[in-house]
Computed example of a mutant assay.
Amino acid sequence: MPDDRKPARTPAEPPAPSPTHAPPIRTLIVDDEPLARRGLVLRLAAHPDIEIVGECGDGASAIAQVHRLQPELMFLDVQMPGADGFTTLGQIPANEMPMVVFVTAYDHYAIQAFEASAVDYLLKPVDEQRLAQSLERVRQNRESRAALGHCSQLLGLLGELSGRAPLELDEALQPDALEQLQSDDRLSVRDSGRVVRVPLHSIRWIDAAGDYMCIHTDDDTLVLRATMRELERQLDPRRFPRIHRSTIVNARRVTETRPHNNGESYLRLDCGQELKLSRSYRDRLPLLQ
């Protein structure tokens, strides 16, 4: 008899997870010829990771659009009335500068294009294969810029902690980098958009007053909007131990101690000021160890 049983069905394998894609590359096209812009738009449509966010036909408009749209990539015509491509680039702030691919009808601009740190240059009429090669350079450059950007942010942060210029990579990689920052001879505090740098030797003590920190120095008392944690992060705890929930002292300015109630003490500084040493912070002051 014929076997009417249906063959066992093999369980379907779960679909492979779709790869995560980087966000599209926001692109601005700058060319004074509308037909040239249209041709480039059509060719770029074959590349789904390219998102055209704007078009313009002169250098002044390009500068304004870069500021407004913040594109990652700009196809920039070299020959335009008024400001040409190179002049246009010179007027874009460095922190807004996108990746640039020059588009030109003359190959003698190539060297000048690369001297302007362009990712690539294209000759008109734009060839699709050459465009694909250029976009691959853009993608590689994007990855490099992202990695470099993260690194620069970290180095800038380390530099801010010391009040110095952003550190170089080899300087930040030194094993004692953090110790070097803490041993800097000045305390740097951001306050309302400014950076105040206070010589460490002049500091007598620091205490909190609500949302503000009072830095008492030989010459003045600075009242800055900061936190105890921000200041502690910069200061060497051996030189500037915390002696109370709201007080840091310059240990070198302590001249004597006297006991108080419940294991607390009072510290006298060389200026005559007395500060309370809390029992819970007693072990932080080397003088009393």
Rank of each mutant, 00 (worst) to 15 (best):
L167K: 06
L285F: 14
A147R: 15
M74Q: 03
T27I: 04
R137V: 09
L73F: 01
G54P: 00
P237C: 03
L224Y: 00
D127L: 09
P98W: 01
R279Q: 10
Q91A: 13
T27M: 03
T255Q: 13
C151N: 11
V53C: 07
D191T: 05
I215L: 08
P98N: 05
P241I: 06
D176Y: 08
G210T: 09
E13K: 13
R194E: 05
L157K: 12
Y106W: 14
S202A: 11
P23D: 10
D3R: 10
R164F: 07
G85V: 03
I206R: 00
C214Q: 12
S265Y: 15
R190H: 13
Q65R: 10
D77A: 03
R233C: 07
L148N: 14
I111V: 15
E179K: 13
L148C: 09
I248E: 04
L155G: 05
L285H: 07
R9G: 10
Q91E: 12
L69E: 01
R9Q: 13
E128T: 14
P166C: 04
A132Q: 12
T104R: 04
M228C: 02
M97C: 09
S280R: 15
A45S: 14
A147G: 08
L187M: 08
L131R: 02
L267S: 00
P34I: 09
L44F: 01
P14V: 12
L69T: 03
D58H: 07
L187Q: 00
L224G: 00
Q129Y: 12
G57V: 00
E51N: 04
I243Q: 00
Q273D: 15
S278C: 09
Y109M: 03
D176A: 11
I52F: 00
M97G: 06
S61A: 15
L178H: 04
F240A: 01
A208C: 12
L89E: 03
A209W: 10
Q91F: 08
D207L: 06
L122T: 04
L222P: 02
R238K: 14
Y106E: 04
F102K: 05
F86W: 07
I63W: 04
F86R: 04
T27H: 00
G90D: 11
L35N: 14
P125Y: 07
R279F: 06
R239H: 12
P286I: 13
E168Y: 08
K6V: 13
I243L: 04
E256I: 05
T217G: 01
A62W: 04
I25Y: 03
M97H: 10
A46K: 14
H201R: 14
R190L: 09
A8D: 13
Q273W: 03
G163Y: 03
A16D: 11
R239M: 07
Q234P: 05
D84S: 08
G272P: 01
L167Y: 02
P71T: 05
L76S: 01
P15L: 13
E96A: 14
Y266G: 09
L277F: 06
